[in-house]
Nucleic acid binder design. Structure first.
Length: 271
DNA sequence: CCGACGTCCTGCTAGC
DNA sequence: TGCTAGCAGGACGTCG
């Protein structure tokens, strides 16, 4: 669910709520997350002060004063929020970190595709992510992007969803980026001209930046770090608009299955 | 090696 | 009105 703009919003929301706060301990539910939470981490975290929050792709990194990190992935339905301790926890809250100010850092995840894991230091998580994540969209060198596309027979949708090629794009923003770039998501990477590849990267960056400014998109579960919903769902031009008229040419938006995901596009504008 | 597809999990709803 | 098949912001393992 949460893609780069939603994860970035969570991180920005959490910074003023978490930095300088001390973790008082850990409470957890009986349910297993995608990656197992280890009880051995709990004494290592307790008493640690939050020094910084970072985002890399769709991953959140909570940097602790002692040099260790909590690495969080929200999966499809994850929520990572700070709430007053006297506000009752919602169902599917799997990890609770009481803070030193009568608040709690809470990880809630209905489908449990998300995870929270502990890393002893920065090199350890950087190594863990190194073979999983390509560059951030704004760090992607246009020459490298053209090279990536030129050597693959996969369709654009599959390329955009592949986190090892470019980090942070998910199902919503893949569709919105293809629409903005006027490219048919069924096109193969190696069919794009250099100009088309450049256009796609430009539009990915623009769409993601605009979505961050709107605090991301709330379809169902997503909320920011303080519980606020996103606003970019009102700006969708392709995603979720099946059968509705294209906002440019009135042609009904089509929905097909691509890379195993529902894919929305305008068959007239996107070529 | 690359690309396609099933699987993990729960909740909601479109369509019968 | 009531039921259920199918689908949902993701990632990863397996198979051909």
């Amino acid at each position: 669910m949460p893609e780069l703009p939603e994860v970035e919003t969570v991180v920005r929301d959490l910074r003023p709520l978490l930095i300088g706060r001390t973790l008082q301990g850990v409470r957890r539910s009986a349910h297993a997350l995608r990656k197992t939470w280890s009880a051995e981490w709990e004494p290592l975290l307790t008493g640690q002060t939050v020094a910084a929050l970072h985002r890399r792709g769709k991953w959140i990194l909570v940097e602790l004063g002692g040099g260790a990190f909590l690495m969080v992935h929200l999966g499809m339905t994850g929520q990572f929020t700070v709430r007053a301790a006297d506000v009752p926890g919602e169902t599917h809250t799997h990890l609770v970190f009481p803070l030193d100010n009568a608040h709690e850092l809470r990880f809630r995840d209905v489908r449990r595709f998300g995870s929270v894991t502990y890393f002893a230091d920065r090199p350890t998580w950087e190594t863990f992510l190194s073979d999983k994540l390509g560059p951030e969209p704004w760090d992607m060198d246009p020459n490298a992007w053209r090279a990536i596309l030129s050597v693959t027979a996969r369709n654009l949708k599959a390329v955009l969803l592949d986190q090892t090629l470019i980090a942070g794009v998910g199902n919503i923003y893949a569709d919105e980026s293809c629409f903005a770039a006027k490219l048919d998501p069924r096109r193969t990477g190696n069919s794009l001209t250099a100009a088309e590849a450049n256009r796609l990267l430009t539009e990915i960056r623009r769409v993601l930046t605009t979505a961050i400014e709107s605090r991301g998109s709330t379809i169902r579960d997503y909320v920011g770090g303080s519980g606020l919903m996103g606003g970019y769902q009102d700006e969708f031009r392709a995603y979720g608009r099946t059968g509705e008229p294209c906002l440019k040419c009135k042609t009904p938006i089509e929905c097909i299955r691509l890379a195993g995901r529902s894919t929305h596009f305008c068959p007239n504008c996107q070529r």
